[in-house]
């Protein structure tokens, strides 16, 4: 164990992304998304991809901001992040009392999240990649038909957000990925192509073809409230927005051959 620990120390001290992020490999394949790939309710096809095992933390994002000062809250361009960006931190380069190092970073814009991922040679996951990973429970790749899976997600929605966010490190799912549910919302690369109607009731509106966006107005699995609500949340956002419960994790193409 000792050599590993040393490696970890050196990596933390010297490598450009301050923390060697750990990615899980996911097989991809055909997947029944709640948002059909086309008007014929087709399954989506996913290439193999890698996904961060955990959401990006305050400590990781602080390290990023230190090496990329353009993304400090006092220097970021307003078009890339609204005024609430990182407002929970003590200062532009200090976490302070209200932001614990191992809490997921929140109040980050889509632009900032994307820049962070680029800094570690990664990108934001697509909605379908995120959805594929999050369909798992501890033992199954796709547990979505299990009422218990759904109930666990709805239960998080029922918790008031007056309490401080928990640290990352929840139980790993089938793919070895943690905290997909029950901790924070997460940005996805194509969040603004999901568009469910902002008035959710007009799903058979004859005008619907006027809308662009892969999700348009028809959800394939309308009973799947738990997932629907995440899409509704993402649909309400603009790329410079930040919220107290919205974080992110990164993804990479292909099958992993390194950290």
């Amino acid at each position: 164990m000792k050599p590993l620990l040393c490696l970890g120390f050196f990596s933390a001290a010297f490598s450009a992304p301050a923390f060697a992020a750990d990615y899980a490999s996911l097989p991809g394949g055909t997947f029944a998304s709640v948002l059909p790939a086309d008007t014929n309710n087709a399954d989506v096809k996913l290439a193999p991809f890698r996904l961060r095992r955990e959401p990006v933390t305050n400590a990781e994002f602080l390290a990023f901001v230190k090496t990329h000062p353009d993304w400090r809250r006092d220097r970021v361009a307003r078009v890339f992040a609204e005024p609430r960006y990182l407002a929970q931190w003590g200062a532009a380069d200090i976490l302070g009392a209200d932001a614990k190092p191992d809490q997921p970073v929140t109040q980050v814009s889509w632009f900032a999240a994307q820049a962070f991922c680029a800094s570690e040679g990664a990108r934001l996951p697509t909605w379908n990649e995120w959805e594929f990973a999050a369909a798992a429970d501890a033992t199954r790749a796709d547990a979505r038909s299990d009422p218990a899976w759904r109930a666990a997600i709805l239960n998080w929605y029922a918790q008031p957000s007056s309490q401080p966010l928990a640290n990352i490190g929840g139980a790993a799912n089938f793919h070895g990925v943690r905290d997909l549910h029950g901790l924070v919302w997460e940005w996805v690369d194509d969040f603004n192509a999901l568009l469910i109607a902002s008035d959710s009731r007009d799903q058979n509106d004859p005008d619907r073809l006027k809308f662009c966006g892969a999700g348009a107005l028809n959800l394939r699995d309308r009973d799947n409230y738990a997932v629907l609500m995440r899409i509704a949340m993402l649909s309400s956002l603009k790329a410079a927005n930040t919220t107290a419960n919205l974080g992110f994790r990164c993804a990479r193409d292909g099958i992993g051959e390194g950290p």
């Binding site: 957000s161 609500m229 509704a232 949340m233 107290a244 419960n245």
Partner: peptide, 8 residues
Amino acid sequence: PDSKMPHN
């Protein structure tokens, strides 16, 4: 600001 959900 501390809401979890979007609303209308």
